[in-house]
Design a protein around this nucleic acid. Structure first.
Lengths: 171, 171
DNA sequence: ATAATACGTCAGCCTTGTTGACATTCCAAG
DNA sequence: CTTGGAATGTCAACAAGGCTGACGTATTAT
């Protein structure tokens, strides 16, 4: 996610921003309304299948890192195992997710998507990407770069580290 | 994270971007994790007061547009009146929000914050703005501009209109 | 041997969303 | 003046998806 972390190469001094409460409030409201748009399209598909956002998140990250352990997923999602388990159990029962005992450490469960799990994930991803693609295209490449830089800064620092560790590194 | 860079397009007026699924997926994950950070600080304060995000949202928009009607607020928040009413009733009972019968149309209720309502809203806002301020400052002015442009494009078009109508214009 | 870890599960609670039904108040049009 | 519809409030029931606490069971680590 953070393959490029160059300091902003902007022409303006980044420490010298004058940020009014009004400007910041606009950004806050943008985040609020944009997140609604961000989840709107997948939500429609999920609803048809009787699933919710929690299922989407699980499918996404299992697809992202096949073989992910339950503990890893818990760490990424930041929920309790009871909460995740409810969702995960459904997905396994419905044949979208496979949970296999770990080879090295047999206490662990490695999670992967089945064929139909990949199908649903693809449908959800595609819907969500379509909106992002339109937004990116309309806003332009430079705006996208800024979008990414600001969002990265909004994330909790230790979460940033955890993301890199759990999602980017190889075993 | 090695991906072949797609080659640039022939220009068709606006710059057409080649957006790989991988690039879009990174944006999607950034939105997910950033939204968590975005709500983290207010959540801590809300918890101390026994409130949730729904209360924060109500306080925010009532503070934003004092005298807002219930219907306006429903439209902004996109929830049912029953859901909003539960939250609103608490806030009124706790003396944070005042609900006055409309002067022109006495069916309507105009919502305003009381002194202590403004206090809590200010505390929540301040916490949330602090994070945004740090993010903006680190990312720089140009990045902020891009951030805003992309977020605006992610919002549903008719929601964009509604926001302008309900929050920017008169009354 | 014992402790710690990874996982699953049961039970119960909370917030915040949903429908549906119904009452009240009030504006506006016939 | 009557009446339809809009705005609001409220009751009840329900669901998703968070949470805590407790417990059980493999499996690994000390």
């Amino acid at each position: 996610m953070t393959q490029t972390r160059p300091k902003p190469t902007g022409s303006t001094g980044e420490q010298l921003l004058f940020l009014t409460d009004e400007q910041l409030r606009q950004g806050i409201e943008l985040m609020f309304f944009a997140y609604r748009g961000f989840t709107a399209d997948p939500d429609l598909i999920l609803d048809e299948h009787g699933y919710g956002r929690a299922h989407h998140r699980a499918l996404h990250f299992i697809n992202r890192r096949p073989g992910l352990t339950v503990n890893n997923l818990l760490d990424i999602l930041g929920v309790t195992k009871q909460s995740l388990n409810r969702v995960l159990r459904q997905l396994v029962e419905d044949g979208l997710v496979e949970s296999r005992t770990g080879r090295n450490d047999r206490r662990q469960r490695n999670l992967t998507l089945t064929e139909s799990g990949r199908d649903l994930e693809a449908a959800l991803s595609q819907a969500q990407r379509a909106r992002m693609r339109r937004a990116y295209s309309t806003a332009g490449a430079q705006a996208v770069q800024g979008f990414r830089e600001v969002l990265e800064q909004i994330i909790d620092p230790d979460m940033r580290n955890r993301i890199d560790r759990l999602l980017e590194s190889r075993e």
